Simulated scan of single mutants.
Amino acid sequence: MTQKRKFPKWFGITLALILVLGLIISYKAYQIFLGASVTDSQKYLYVHTNDNYENVLRRVRTENIVKDADEFDMVAKAMKYPASVKPGRYKLEKNMSNRRLIGNLRGGYQEAVALRFSNIRLKEDFAGFLGRNFEPDSLQFISLLNNEAEAEKYGFTKDNFYTMFIPNTYEIYWNTSADKVIERLHTEYKKFWTAERIAKAEKQNLTPIEVSILASIVRGEALHNDEMPLIAGLYLNRLKKGMLLQADPTVIFANNDFTIRRVLFRHLAIDNPYNTYKYRGLPPGPINMAPIVAIDAVLNPAQHNYIYMCAKEDFSGYHAFAETVAEHQVNARKFQKALDERNIKK
Rank of each mutant, 00 (worst) to 15 (best):
L245A: 05
A201Y: 08
K153V: 06
G103V: 09
E71R: 15
F129Q: 09
L206G: 08
W10K: 15
D125T: 00
L264I: 13
W193N: 02
E341F: 00
I18Y: 07
P229K: 06
D271I: 04
V38R: 02
I270P: 14
F258P: 14
R61S: 08
I120P: 01
F165H: 14
A16F: 10
N146C: 10
E227F: 00
N50C: 05
G285I: 00
N205D: 10
L23S: 05
S84Q: 15
G88C: 11
V218E: 02
L17D: 00
D340T: 01
Q42V: 06
E111I: 14
A332N: 11
L244W: 02
P301N: 09
A16T: 13
T14G: 11
Q31C: 03
E341I: 00
L245N: 13
Y44A: 02
L230A: 03
E152T: 12
L34F: 15
I182N: 06
L244N: 11
V47P: 00
L15C: 14
N343T: 00
L122C: 01
E196H: 12
K278M: 05
V263W: 13
L139C: 00
L122N: 10
E135A: 02
F321S: 06
D159R: 11
S138D: 09
H319V: 10
T324G: 05
I344Y: 13
F321E: 04
S41T: 14
S84H: 15
N50P: 07
Q140A: 11
N160C: 01
A127K: 08
F156D: 11
S177M: 03
N237W: 02
Y318K: 11
T49L: 05
L268I: 06
I102D: 14
E196D: 15
Q336L: 07
L299K: 03
K6A: 07
I270D: 04
L236V: 09
A112R: 14
W193R: 02
D68H: 15
N52Q: 12
P301G: 08
E152Y: 04
S41I: 10
A254L: 05
K241C: 00
I142R: 10
V60I: 15
A232V: 06
G12M: 08
